[in-house]
Design a protein around this nucleic acid. Structure first.
Lengths: 143, 143
DNA sequence: GTCAATGCAAACGCTTTGCACCTTG
DNA sequence: CAAGGTGCAAAGCGTTTGCATTGAC
């Protein structure tokens, strides 16, 4: 995903393109599988690039979520985690959360069509998005 | 669900049966569809029963979750919400979250078997539980 | 040059913890 | 009566906000 994408999305919303926003975007872009917290983002950027206030990070991430650039996740560890949205479909991947080691495994199956159809039909509910979290014990921890 | 159930679950974990724990259980039991926050629980019990410290509520709810009596939910409004677990199956109901009015609609469909089978097979992951949140616009708000 | 964005520190809100006192079994 | 539970207040911690300064367009 190029920074052309970022520029376009920001312009659509009338937002300015700043060094800080590019840094955050680039970091998320090179850590696609990591679900980074605001604090982790700050640590990485301060280490590798330059200073970056935590308030700016929260404000930027909120903009990214509003603009459909990023997704905010809650994995029950007390802090929000963010990742870039890979495409514009409403079908996000799912996450397996290991209750022993805490690792997050991505699942690219969807298999939610039947459930979504039933929901739209039975509840007259217009689905925009969904999140699926599956808790259990991962391969490694089972041994 | 009777308080016999509560007593049994508490004893299994070596926990004492106190007025506060009974009050919280009874309140959740008579508000099965409400997903109450700690603060709401406190308000209701202080109004109807007697004094109850917020720290006791958090400690009790944690015990309830650990004992399989209750489920902790996060509906992205900044506070955790709790409801009694209806049975011992790992198949909880799903929740529809209206992005306009914030209302929570319960869905008693499951339809996750196919996805769970694929996950257990492809990822060698032992599933204990899952949560599904579907975001969108509810019937009323669509008008 | 104008208006939004940033950084800092303070404020916020939910949740947890320390500790003296109280209650259950 | 011993061990765990409670209530209060303080502390914790992630997140948000106010405000003066800086930077994008």
């Amino acid at each position: 995903m190029s920074h052309r994408f970022l520029n376009q999305k920001l312009k659509e919303k009338g937002l300015k393109i700043t060094r800080q926003r590019k840094d955050i975007f680039n970091l998320l872009n090179s850590n696609k599988k990591k679900h980074m917290s605001a604090e982790e983002i700050q640590n990485e950027i301060v280490k590798k690039e330059s200073n970056l206030g935590i308030a700016t990070i929260y404000r930027t991430l909120q903009h990214f979520v509003d603009s459909g650039i990023a997704i905010k996740h809650d994995f029950d560890d007390g802090k929000s985690r963010y990742e870039l949205k890979v495409d514009d479909s409403s079908h996000n991947h799912h996450h397996l959360i290991c209750q022993k080691c805490g690792s997050i495994i991505e699942v690219n199956l969807d298999l939610m069509e039947e459930l979504e159809n039933q929901i739209e039909k039975n509840f007259d509910f217009e689905i925009k998005n969904h999140t699926v979290k599956v808790y259990g014990i991962c391969k490694n921890c089972k041994r």
